[in-house]
Amino acid sequence: MRHFSYFLRHALLAAGALFMATPFIVMLSTALKSQANIFSGSFSIIPEQWAASGNFGEVFTSLPIIQFMLNGALVTATIFCIQVLVAVPCAYALAKFDFKGRNILFNCVLWSLLIPPQAVAIPVFLELHSLGLLNSYSALILPWTISVLGIFLMRQFFMAIPDDIMDAARMDGMGEISILIRIMLPMAVPALTAFGILSFIAHWNDFFWPLICLQDVQYFTPPLGIAYFKTDDAGIKYGPLMAAACVITIPLLVVFLAARDKFIQGVSVQAGVK
């Protein structure tokens, strides 16, 4: 019975992994096919007519894909750095300071998680327009500098740290800022890594907001840039489009694999805190 349970558990995990990987397998398969093979009417994972060099070559010759990826890296890195500067002090105060209205403020954070960004897109757009910041890096960065998810995750992590550590630091003469920077932040690396990966994935893949606030190609992020393969005259070039999707997916895989252990550790800590 134990062996059957072991086998069943791993079979379900393998099936789930295959299900999650299927879109990426199809994406890569399509990127290797010619346009005629894609529209042949029969589906196969292995291409019948290979066109990998043509599809990937068109990505780098017809699009400034490197510029798009540099834009994406600049925007996501800047957003994350500012989010950390805002979220960490807020989370520390909500977790370790006992003040009137703390629970109300934390409930506001939880309620804010329920608001989709699309619901406030028009007011944010009008505000940026009035400030003359549309069609710029500022328009891509400013709406996301305060992350309620980051505040929530960091608060949950700080709640798991014993108060005795901070009391000992205060007895040694350390101020709250020193405690936060020199004690809390080094201990919060797993939580920051988990939040960083979530933030990077969300803003690297964001198509909705850049589509609204940008016009100049020089500011385009990767998802918006690869939309160039859809034209009114030629329709959708699925081969180059999927090849471009493969290219912009590589940084996501690299970042996740590089920080996988810290990410799992950070998520595990969040799950264990009530």
Results as ranks from 00 to 15, higher is better:
134 L>H: 08
86 V>I: 15
135 N>P: 13
105 L>M: 15
137 Y>Q: 07
138 S>K: 00
81 C>G: 05
90 C>G: 06
124 V>S: 12
81 C>W: 10
114 L>H: 12
78 T>G: 02
122 I>H: 03
130 S>G: 12
108 C>Y: 12
111 W>D: 01
128 L>V: 11
118 Q>A: 10
131 L>H: 10
126 L>H: 13
84 V>G: 05
116 P>F: 03
108 C>T: 08
110 L>W: 04
129 H>R: 14
121 A>V: 06
123 P>N: 09
83 Q>D: 01
124 V>Q: 15
105 L>Q: 10
103 N>G: 12
134 L>G: 04
103 N>Q: 06
110 L>P: 05
138 S>W: 12
104 I>L: 13
139 A>F: 08
115 I>D: 01
114 L>N: 09
120 V>L: 14
80 F>Y: 12
124 V>D: 10
93 A>V: 15
80 F>E: 03
99 F>R: 11
107 N>Q: 01
88 V>A: 14
125 F>R: 01
116 P>V: 04
83 Q>V: 08
87 A>Y: 13
132 G>N: 03
91 A>P: 06
129 H>W: 08
126 L>D: 15
136 S>Y: 05
119 A>T: 11
132 G>M: 00
85 L>N: 11
126 L>C: 11
114 L>F: 15
113 L>R: 07
94 L>P: 03
85 L>K: 11
133 L>E: 13
124 V>Y: 14
108 C>V: 10
99 F>I: 03
94 L>R: 08
79 I>V: 13
104 I>T: 11
128 L>T: 13
119 A>H: 00
96 K>T: 07
128 L>P: 11
96 K>D: 12
101 G>K: 15
84 V>M: 15
113 L>K: 03
102 R>W: 00
115 I>S: 03
113 L>C: 09
90 C>Q: 14
133 L>N: 07
130 S>P: 09
100 K>D: 00
120 V>T: 15
79 I>F: 01
93 A>M: 12
97 F>D: 09
87 A>R: 05
128 L>S: 13
108 C>E: 00
121 A>P: 02
108 C>K: 04
113 L>N: 09
122 I>N: 08
136 S>C: 04
107 N>F: 02
87 A>K: 03
86 V>H: 06
89 P>K: 15
90 C>T: 14
82 I>R: 07
130 S>F: 10
114 L>E: 10
